[in-house]
């Protein structure tokens, strides 16, 4: 029982990261019907920006330049904020690539553009920093005794920190969607794009903001997880894949479902890794895919997704 609780606690950190990325994906998908496959690599780039700003340069991109002109190292908070701004801007660029002539682009164009950006970002960073792993600072207490004991199971401060941060951010986002003019416009576009446009909502501008906020959320996930995973160019590749799976499991068009999917996936991964002896860390990916296929087969719209109804 103690071990079981421990595994749930261990899944919390990863679960909140998956949940954050999955919510970012589903926000965009719900409003624009497009999936941002570049979100993972964009948050990796943002995390590198945070590293450059928050630490002394050691052969990093623009490290010396940042020290001379921006007065780095900065405290963690402004460095994280800067990363979120970068995530916002990259998402805007991707959105710009996809918007344009026709508002509803075919799947191939969406996939092509976002996969293209994803490869390019990964390649550029890989080209600059190589395959080196960098340590990344964390705002949460670290150390051998940085935990609270709950019934014998250790709940690490870092996991608490990540989970609480994500819960607060996601609740803020939900409030933004629920109670502000921008949120109303965004929900109007989600519900009916053409009618929203007719009532005078700037569809493209609002969507761009939505993409940008999703990008910031991705960047936040990146800077929070980088301490555990260590920072390297392929840091987000697998995490992002899991988040995609999580969003699909929960229902791509439901942010709540996506968050739930993130937690479910993390718990299933941790449990499978802990209890099934043949399954090592590397094969958590196989468990995720199995879960994804089962959910899609039984319930193609995901756990909380809406049924897609088409008028003929």
């Amino acid at each position: 029982m103690q071990l079981f609780v421990q595994r749930i606690f261990d899944a919390l950190g990863n679960g909140s990261i998956y949940a954050a990325l999955a919510v970012a994906l589903s926000l965009v998908y719900r409003a624009s019907g497009q999936l941002n496959f570049a979100l993972g690599e964009a948050s990796m780039v943002s995390t590198y920006v945070a590293l450059t700003l928050a630490t002394k340069p050691r052969g990093l991109m623009f490290g010396t330049w940042a020290q001379q002109h921006l007065g780095t190292p900065w405290p963690l908070l402004p460095a994280f904020m800067a990363a979120m701004v970068v995530g916002f801007l990259i998402a805007l660029v991707v959105h710009r690539l996809l918007s344009g002539r026709s508002p509803r682009r075919p799947v191939t164009a969406v996939v092509g553009a976002t996969i293209g950006v994803s490869l390019l970002l990964n390649g550029l960073v890989g080209q600059t920093v190589g395959t080196r792993f960098s340590a990344f600072p964390t705002p949460f207490p670290q150390g051998a005794d940085a935990y609270v004991s709950v019934g014998g199971a250790r709940l690490w401060f870092e996991n608490i920190g990540i989970t609480v941060t994500m819960v607060v951010v996601l609740l803020t986002l939900a409030a933004l969607m629920r109670f502000t003019r921008l949120g109303l416009a965004f929900r109007a576009i989600t519900s009916n794009r053409d009618s929203a446009e007719l009532t005078g909502i700037h569809v493209e501008r609002t969507l761009a903001l939505g993409w940008g906020m999703a990008g910031s959320l991705g960047a936040l996930a990146g800077v929070l997880v980088a301490n555990t995973t260590l920072l390297e160019p392929n840091m987000m590749t697998r995490l992002f894949l899991f988040s995609l799976a999580a969003a699909t499991i929960g229902g791509l068009d439901s942010p709540v479902g996506a968050a739930l999917g993130g937690l479910v996936l993390a718990v299933v991964q941790t449990m499978a890794g802990g209890y099934v002896p043949a399954i090592g860390g590397d094969v958590s990916i196989l468990v995720s895919i199995a879960l994804l296929l089962v959910v899609l087969y039984v319930r193609p719209r995901g756990l909380l997704g809406r049924r897609h109804v088409v008028r003929i």
Binding site: L35, A245, L252, D282, L286, I289
Partner: peptide, 25 residues
């Protein structure tokens, strides 16, 4: 057969990523 569009795109992405772990196993 039951999955289409972007859903299928990400399933194929996941299958492609699982090739390495399966081979290693």
């Amino acid at each position: 057969l039951r999955i289409k569009g972007l859903h299928l795109a990400l399933v194929t992405l996941a299958l492609g990523a699982s090739f390495g772990p399966i081979v290693k196993r």
